[in-house]
Design a protein around this nucleic acid. Sequence first.
DNA 1: CATCGATTGTAATTAAGTTGCAATCTCAGA
DNA 2: TCTGAGATTGCAACTTAATTACAATCGATG
Lengths: 106, 106
Amino acid sequence: MNSNEELKNLLDFDLLSKLVVGIGEVSEITGVPTRQIRYWEEKGIIHSSQEAEGTTRKYDYLNVKKIILVKELLDDGYTLDAAAKKVGDRMKLINEAFAKLAQRSE
Amino acid sequence: MNSNEELKNLLDFDLLSKLVVGIGEVSEITGVPTRQIRYWEEKGIIHSSQEAEGTTRKYDYLNVKKIILVKELLDDGYTLDAAAKKVGDRMKLINEAFAKLAQRSE
DNA sequence: CATCGATTGTAATTAAGTTGCAATCTCAGA
DNA sequence: TCTGAGATTGCAACTTAATTACAATCGATG
């Protein structure tokens, strides 16, 4: 049994993907003000799942992770666009790894 | 490098533990009506993190997992109390495994 | 000092969640 | 069939959380 299988037994990836939190929670977790999160979203850097206009935005694990990474780079002196690009590249890898793990859990 | 270390590199357990969702979300995920979730909580079977009276309940991964398991047993014919006990035992193991994984991530 | 990127403030509105009280539903046993 | 305990549900009145739109601010750079 390889490590991924062990992992799948412990962690329910299907559930993980459904754990979507509100913007207030994201703000508390990341330290980024809600206003700023919405701004990044306006700019197309973050993509929450918002069913329709006027309904509340929801953020999954990967969304929150991305916000954390962007914030780290901003704090480090990057411009928003540069940070977004850099994080985008890294998120690709994380997304792929997750996709693999989530595969057989359906 | 063992599987747990690989896992830690991929999954941010600190973040996972902070992903707490509202009761409406839990209801959608699990198929258990919000009213019923509150009832189970009243009975002491579920323990959401509710800062104070009147504020909204929040449920983390393990809470939601527990609700899913309880529901499965109920659907299978168990009484609520019996299901709660059975699930409680299983959650102990899951909790321990998570505690181990969450350790060095701080 | 004007411009641009980045962020922030706020009012008015809607969505989501809370409690408490009471009603209902199920079903095993007298 | 009646009944009582366990389990669930309905709902009104209320509070908290989140939404949008418009405008203001703030710092760095040419």
